[in-house]
Design a protein around this nucleic acid. Structure first.
Lengths: 237, 237
DNA sequence: CTAAAACTGTGTATCAAATACACGAAAATA
DNA sequence: TATTTTCGTGTATTTGATACACAGTTTTAG
């Protein structure tokens, strides 16, 4: 299975063969070259040819290191995530979650192509595991059951990802979200939408450069409120 | 811009030219054929050749209707969403949101390929607008500001989408999430994760056939709690 | 009513990108 | 030193999107 192979790649289970010439490249090196291309010109610009070219090798040489392009992308994902920060979660779980989210948001911001990857189907590499671990640690010890911690981690992660995506897309879209809707909406069919459009809510929302989109932050705060309530209720029970 | 053209396609701004033979196909018809293929065999099976073949036409004939495959996919998206249900939101916003989510979840369930689309960058078609409208309507009148309603709609939509995705992926993955982690995790590096693994939290979670994944539902409930708290606080202020 | 115009469906051709395969050079081992 | 194994490479195949030009069809101008 390719998953197996990807895992080897990701977790470095490589036994160096004793014979033959030594490899001059490494998988991380290749992945890093690919990441640079993706950062600069988007994921579509990342072809095996291009990556190899950037490294000064031929296309096919890469296949000595990576069994397929998809697997290379898996590696790119894990490498670009990097190590999660050490979040000091002493009691301050709410701040902890926010830090976590902000960090992830920043990564998405710096590497917009990440948002195009089918992350959830990619095999889990060391860094992704570490980020997950980090989230769980932040949430642990505040009175949630284990499965609840997992649920919330996934929920926060998912919301962050998808909101980052829609924010980025709206940012890059030549036609803004508002314009797009404006053009389409007719008042009878979409009264609420039309009302909002007229009120200007959609105009240049999310222009925040590095911070969380206000759109996202509001939802996140409500979620955190909800967790607080739940934890409290549980404690009292 | 292709966005413009897509919008025409989606909203049916087509002025039939007066000259020449009449077209025998229609864009929705083509899209529906493509959807059937995607449902049955996944998005990768949808090639222009295949779609045309299914309709009994040649590959190039499709280009008389659709300027590119990407635009066809945009149309597929809007068509497969269909019309949102009429949610009776008389006061029961919480139930309303849950209904909305459940419906969307069902669509994702029936058309897993939807989760692979870069939805947020696709132009908004009539049905997508209607779903958005529907969500806004459910949230309106409960004491939120307009921009807050928008934020929450996006947040819920995003979380639903990404959680549906990860649930689907885990479902279809031959190697389950647990196994994958099990293989990778080492106890020193990922203590919390390892602990959870041992506790069996990951084993056959989310086997729910049609309902929301419990994983997702928990997060959603917390979010709804949070909204409730917020609305209440606002009312009192 | 006829010719020009515009559009339809089609066949052929191009282009890009992944990747299978086989080769010669290099390194380790017997 | 002969053999084995692996490396980097060149070539070839495949798949899919899509440009382009052609022939038949339907309108409308004149």
């Amino acid at each position: 299975m390719s998953v197996e192979h990807s895992l080897d790649l990701l977790w470095g289970n490589g036994k160096r063969p004793s014979r033959g010439p030594k490899p001059t490249l490494t998988v991380p090196q290749i992945a890093r070259a690919a990441i640079e291309i993706a950062d600069a010109e988007g994921l579509d610009a990342v072809s095996m040819q291009r990556v190899a070219g950037e490294l000064g090798y031929t296309t096919m040489s890469l296949y000595r290191y990576v069994p397929s392009k998809d697997q290379l992308v898996d590696v790119m994902l894990d490498i670009v995530l990097g190590e999660p920060p050490a979040i000091d979660h002493a009691g301050a779980w709410r701040a902890g979650v926010q830090t976590w989210v902000r960090e992830v948001w920043g990564i998405y911001r710096r590497h917009a192509w990440l948002l195009r990857l089918p992350v959830s189907q990619a095999p889990v590499g060391p860094n992704r595991a570490a980020w997950f671990e980090c989230a769980l640690r932040v949430l642990s010890g505040i009175g949630l059951r284990e499965d609840e911690m997992v649920s919330l981690s996934l929920f926060v992660d998912g919301a962050t990802r998808e909101l980052a995506r829609s924010t980025a897309d709206r940012r890059q879209a030549s036609t803004s979200f508002a314009t797009m809707l404006q053009r389409s909406a007719d008042a009878e069919r979409f009264p609420t939408l039309t009302g909002l459009l007229d009120s200007g809510v959609f105009d240049n929302a999310d222009d925040t450069p590095d911070d969380l989109a206000p759109n996202f932050d509001f939802g996140l705060q409500r979620l955190l409120d909800g967790i607080e309530v739940y934890v409290q209720a549980r404690r009292e029970a």
